[in-house]
């Protein structure tokens, strides 16, 4: 049942270090072969990353984007859960939403970003909205499946004991759904970071990693682009790690100990 908790176990430290070292060596070689303009060396990248964290505008851009990511993620979870529960309860609601969700899944995200510019103009709220819309199907679909797979025995129990509907929702449906939705929520974290930065770049919103990246590109600052990529990978890992930590301590409270 909690395979994903196990799957997120730390891998053997030796291999992690070996993997990272081998990756860095390969990268270094690439940088040697192609030169610093095309591929920044690991050292340059690290240096650039350190510089990012000591330069106020870069830190501001980072925190700005992080704030948007967290906002988008929060909205996604709430919307996904609310609509997912609804559609899980009522198949006709699922049918009703299906075309819209299919479109959101099928449309190239860049095209949706362009759509946003055309219809709503550029701006911070539009960027967040685009990220929410694009990330929504993942959590929504997860929630629908989760609601449908809530233990039927428990549901019969709630009905027999005439537990009020509101309590049923809060005490049974929401925890059960949230719990089986957790792996999707972790995926959504990484997805949202990527979608949001994409939207920032395409929509061209002020301040944020998207703008910093566009500028770095204009200046051909390869090391800086690499550094941002590193920072973003670290951010995704960090968000996942924090969520996993919060979840683990909470979920493990009621789970069997091994």
């Amino acid at each position: 049942m909690n395979n994903w908790l196990k799957a997120k176990k730390a891998m053997p430290l030796v291999w992690m270090i070996t993997g990272t070292v081998a990756f860095t060596l390969a990268w270094q070689m690439m940088a040697r072969v192609y030169g610093p303009l095309l591929v920044a060396t690991p050292a340059e990248t690290l240096e650039s990353a350190v510089r990012l964290f000591t330069s106020p505008p870069a830190v501001a851009a980072f925190s700005r984007t992080l704030g948007r990511v967290l906002l988008a993620l929060g909205l996604q979870i709430m919307a996904g859960l609310a609509f997912g529960l609804l559609a899980g309860f009522y198949p006709w609601v699922e049918d009703l939403f299906k075309p819209a969700v299919s479109i959101l899944v099928a449309v190239p995200p860049v095209a949706l970003a362009l759509f946003v510019i055309f219809v709503f103009g550029g701006g911070e709220r539009q960027v967040v909205a685009a990220a929410v819309a694009l990330g929504f199907p993942l959590l929504y679909g997860g929630a629908v499946t989760a609601v449908r797979s809530v233990d039927r025995g428990l549901l019969e129990m709630l009905r027999v004991f005439r537990v009020p509907k509101a309590t049923q929702l809060l005490a049974a449906y929401v925890p059960a759904t949230l719990y089986s939705l957790l792996p999707s929520i972790l995926l959504a974290a990484g997805l949202t970071v990527r979608l949001l930065i994409m939207a920032e770049v395409i929509v061209g919103v002020d301040r944020g990693i998207g703008q910093a990246l566009s500028q770095a590109r204009v200046h051909m600052a390869t090391a800086e682009i690499f550094a941002w990529m590193l920072v973003m990978a670290a951010t995704v890992l960090l968000i996942e790690g924090v969520m996993l930590y919060l979840v683990k301590s909470h979920v493990l409270a009621w789970q069997a100990r091994r």
Partner: peptide
């Protein structure tokens, strides 16, 4: 008026304590 059902399996909510599972049916 009120039914008490002991199912073939316990059917407890895993995320509620023993007490929480009993108070559940006193709700409302």
């Amino acid at each position: 008026q009120r039914i008490g059902f002991i199912f073939q399996e316990p059917r407890l909510l895993p995320w509620r304590t023993a007490l929480g599972n009993v108070t559940l049916v006193l709700q409302g």
